[in-house]
């Protein structure tokens, strides 16, 4: 394998009092190649979001503490990066979309302005900023983009808001898109539209995607590889098909069984038996 796009080594992040810390992320290591799609799967509270935010040191310290680890992006160490370089990384190299589009957009600025901020921050060479914003909105399938620039977030539906978030993230053509449960807050039909959009964008660009989800159903046809997190640790990783077919860890097995099969009569929801794990 050539030099990876991203390499995370022994990442450790804690919250809470130093004498009784909550180890949100505990010795996590993984790597991503350019253009690769990696899914991070795990139940609520397993440390997925904390890991994702740490990639550009977005966690506020305090309450968070980076206790160990190294994060290399394109060979540069993020953990010790000075603030200006870090800002150049955020949005330009690594862009984010979050779970709740409605609270992730600032309600008192127009969507056009919020995309403009990203473009002006990272692409000062762009002359026709407005045209660029329209193009970004077009790309994510917002019709009549030119007339929507002046809309405020609350004037859009949740699905549209998430499209705006994606447009904003892609406006600076990042090498890595971190999508933290991008569809959890949306209803099922919109979920599918957004995932289809991400798939389409992935094929158009050579962008790597880190997809965070607790839904194995989304993973199978989307991700090249899967990482399974459990209580702050990676308990299993490998190519998607392999992990799905031969899950090694009991927790992974339980997660996979949680996914209701399409076209199959829904069984009683399987409850994860924690006693059997660890």
């Amino acid at each position: 394998m050539s030099a990876p796009l991203l390499r995370v080594e022994n990442l450790g992040i804690e919250f809470g009092p130093a004498d009784a810390p909550v180890k949100a992320v505990d010795g996590v290591s993984f790597a991503m190649a350019a253009g690769e799609t990696l899914a991070v799967v795990g139940e609520s509270g397993s440390g997925k979001s904390v890991t994702a935010l740490a990639l550009t040191r977005l966690l506020a310290t305090p309450p968070a503490r980076y206790v160990s680890g190294a994060i290399q992006f394109q060979g540069r160490e993020v953990m010790t990066m000075p603030a200006p370089e870090l800002r150049a990384l955020r949005g330009k190299q690594i862009a984010y979309i979050f779970q709740e589009p409605s609270s992730s957009l600032n309600p008192v600025f127009t969507i056009g302005y919020q995309i403009r901020e990203a473009i002006e921050q990272h692409r000062p060479e762009v002359r026709d900023v407005r045209g660029e914003i329209v193009r970004a909105l077009d790309l994510v399938g917002i019709r009549d983009a030119a007339t929507r620039l002046g809309d405020y977030p609350h004037q859009l539906s949740g699905g549209m808001q998430q499209r705006v978030m994606i447009a904003m993230a892609l406006a600076c053509q990042p090498n890595l898109l971190v999508a933290d449960e991008p569809t959890t807050a949306l209803d099922v039909t919109i979920q599918k539209q957004i995932m289809d959009l991400l798939r389409e964008l992935k094929s158009k660009t050579n962008m790597a995607i880190l997809l965070i989800t607790h839904n194995f159903g989304l993973v199978s046809d989307f991700a090249d590889r899967v990482v399974v997190m459990f209580r702050g640790k990676i308990v299993e990783s490998g190519p998607t098909a392999e992990v799905l077919r031969h899950p090694q860890h009991p927790y992974t097995r339980a997660l996979i069984e949680c996914v209701p099969k399409l076209g199959q009569k829904q069984r009683r929801l399987k409850v994860i038996d924690y006693a059997g794990i660890n």
Binding site: L58, A88, L89, R90, E100, N106, A118
Partner: peptide
């Protein structure tokens, strides 16, 4: 404490 400030930081704003 609002999420949209995290978005602003994630965009690379100072």
């Amino acid at each position: 404490g609002q999420d949209f400030l995290r978005t602003a930081r994630a965009k690379g704003l100072s």
